[in-house]
């Protein structure tokens, strides 16, 4: 897909495992996808599907006892050189430089990402100075400018306030300002609107889209909300239990989904468009616990189209069903 462009970030067969006393949790188990410049990649999945750990792996901030055991993450840097992120030490200078300037990060809960003892401004100014190496005064001016861009009213005053003095929406805007302060080319947004109300969510999504238009950056948007994906993404990666089950352009995913999980997920959500009070088609069962993932295709125990003898023993590999869409399922012959 997008063969005319070189991907900005390319993840190949990423495996991140957590080694715990109770057993190994394969949080990410062979994820492969690309993020293109100026585009939005939506990563969608339910709890335990490994979407957040994927983001943490890219930034190399996976918590102990997690470890990237396999795969590569290649980032095409501004200078045109390719950097293999999995080869870098998690505390090395290189990765720290990349975290601020090449990749920005927005978390779900903005309250915990801000230090309660420093003002919002201090934290932005610190980030700018660390990565851009400019004077305190210039950095402050730039911070105010960034706050203004993300739509915070009276940024000259807000810059000296603490995170807890801001409302949820403003805090998330400030978080985006921190992430954008050094002009990253990739913004990873991990559930950026989950903690917010719908009207605030609309504001933040709007802001993200505007920032993307202005700066031409790529966005990797991680969420469980299919509506948000449909509104925002250009390409979609659907994950289930650490694996990418299907990926393709947003229209193909929503209008001709191929994987039984994607199909069932789309059918099961009550939509504001759909007829009320009729029984929703559901996916039977619930998500298996990561210690107890099924062998073979991870979705087979809940899959209505499961092929006995195949799906429960062998693991499907991604198969291209169209030029841009691929699916990991035995229903589609390679």
């Amino acid at each position: 897909m997008h063969s005319e462009h070189k991907p900005l970030l390319s993840v190949r067969n990423l495996k991140t495992y957590f080694f715990q006393d109770e057993g190994t949790v394969k949080a990410v188990d062979g994820a492969t996808f690309d993020v293109y410049p100026g585009k939005t990649l939506g990563v969608v999945g339910e709890s335990g599907c490994g979407k957040s750990v994927t983001a943490q792996s890219i930034l190399r901030i996976v918590d102990q006892p997690g470890r990237i055991v396999e795969g590569e993450i290649v980032l095409c840097c501004a200078k045109g050189t390719d950097v293999e992120l999995t080869k870098l030490h998690p505390n090395s200078k290189e990765i720290r430089a990349i975290r601020g300037t090449e990749i920005g990060l927005v978390f779900q809960e903005p309250m915990t990402s801000f230090s309660p003892v420093h003002t919002v401004g201090n934290q932005i100014i610190e980030a700018i100075r660390l990565h851009c190496g400019i004077s305190e005064r210039e950095a402050r001016a730039k911070a105010i400018e960034t706050l203004r861009q993300v739509g915070i009213p009276k940024p000259e005053r807000r810059i000296d306030e603490y995170a807890f003095e801001l409302s949820g929406g403003l805090r998330q805007r400030a978080m985006i300002a921190v992430a954008l302060s050094c002009d990253p080319r990739l913004l990873i947004a991990d559930e950026p609107t989950t903690a917010l109300d719908v009207t605030t969510q609309a504001q933040i999504l709007d802001l993200l889209r505007r920032m993307q238009e202005q700066r031409g950056m790529a966005i990797m948007l991680i969420t469980h909300n299919l509506g948000v994906i449909a509104e925002m993404a250009d390409d979609v990666v659907v994950m289930y239990l650490g694996r990418v089950v299907e990926q393709g352009p947003v229209d193909a995913i929503f209008h001709s989904p191929k994987h039984p999980y994607t199909k069932a997920l789309l059918r099961s959500i009550p939509s504001i468009e759909s007829t009320p009070r009729v029984e929703l088609p559901t996916i039977s069962g619930s998500i298996p616990h990561p210690y107890n993932r099924p062998s073979g295709c991870p979705f087979f125990p809940r899959c209505p189209e499961c092929i006995p003898g195949t799906c429960d023993t062998a693991e499907p590999t991604p198969i291209a069903v169209s030029e841009e869409q691929s699916v990991s399922c035995f229903l589609y012959p390679s």
């Binding site: 709890s47 559901t282 039977s284 298996p288 125990p301």
Partner: peptide, 25 residues
Amino acid sequence: MKETTPINPESTMASSPTETLPEEF
């Protein structure tokens, strides 16, 4: 990974149109 996870692995809860008793592994 850090999402809520029950201690015990799941058993299935069928919610087929007739809402039968859950089958399970």
